[in-house]
């Protein structure tokens, strides 16, 4: 069964600008999907429909068989979203409290919250910074904290909006390691990016978006050629005839 089923999804913003236009997409459990496209192509708008932060103007989005419009809270529990700007996602005064924010919103018992917080901090390597204030963290650590905050809600699908923006090389590798680890653990992963080079080695499927539509969809080797016409820089490997190489290797 598909965990995500999108049928004829269109979204028009309040100013009349068309954000998405007739999107059809089916995603199986455990897939690793990279979405690329120029600014304003509809990548973030599409992701925000997966957890009902935006609702369709027409069409349907079903998460694990249930429409997001019928049960938005369920959709948010299943689809965890890591935003581009970590500073806006971190809402508490210490690392531990911020990770607990999501489970507290789910009204879980205190013991269960503590257990989840501890696990999420261990997975993201932030246990040593549990009592630190978020403002003293580096960019990579903030991104990992944002991931920990989402992980504590135990979502099946993880959506990363431009996860490598403003990160240096070690920070990028840290976050990449987290994403690939979560995929290995069985999570379904969505990543939007302008820079395919960093992530493409791990993707099983590449979507190219253009003017609110899916322009290309398939395995990276088949889709990647000529992506520069869609405002995305073509990675090094296909031009040189090399195999895909991970930034982690």
């Amino acid at each position: 069964m598909n965990i995500i089923e999108i049928n004829n999804l269109s979204h028009r913003f309040s100013n009349g600008f068309p954000g998405l236009d007739g999107i059809n997409l089916s995603v199986k459990k455990g897939e690793f999907i990279v979405i690329a496209g120029r600014n304003g192509s509809g990548k973030t708008t599409l992701l925000r429909h997966l957890n009902a932060l935006l609702l369709p103007t027409s069409g349907t989005v079903r998460i694990d068989g249930v429409s997001v419009q019928d049960d938005p809270v369920r959709a948010r529990r299943i689809v965890g979203m890591v935003f581009q700007d970590s500073d806006s996602q971190i809402v508490c005064e210490t690392v531990r409290e911020d990770v607990a924010f999501g489970p507290e919103n789910l009204c879980l018992e205190r013991d269960e919250i503590e257990k989840r917080v501890s696990e999420a901090l261990t997975v993201t390597g932030l246990s040593g910074l549990a009592d630190a204030g978020p403002h003293i963290l580096s960019g990579g650590e903030k991104r990992r904290l944002a991931i920990a905050g989402v992980l504590a809600m135990m979502p099946e699908v993880l959506v990363f909006d431009e996860p490598f923006s403003n990160l240096d090389y070690p920070g990028t590798r840290d976050v990449l390691m987290q994403i690939t680890g979560l995929h290995r653990a069985g999570r379904t992963i969505f990543v939007t990016t302008h820079d395919l080079e960093k992530i493409i080695a791990h993707a099983g499927r590449l979507l190219i978006m253009e003017k609110g539509k899916i322009a290309r969809d398939g395995i990276p080797e088949k889709v990647i050629s000529g992506v520069e016409t869609f405002g995305v820089k073509e990675p090094y490997f296909p031009r040189m005839g090399f195999e895909r190489v991970s930034w982690l290797s």
Partner: peptide, 13 residues
């Protein structure tokens, strides 16, 4: 928006 994505509501632990 980020708080909404993490299911924020008045009823919480």
């Amino acid at each position: 928006v980020a708080m909404e994505a993490r299911c924020y509501s008045d009823t919480r632990t």
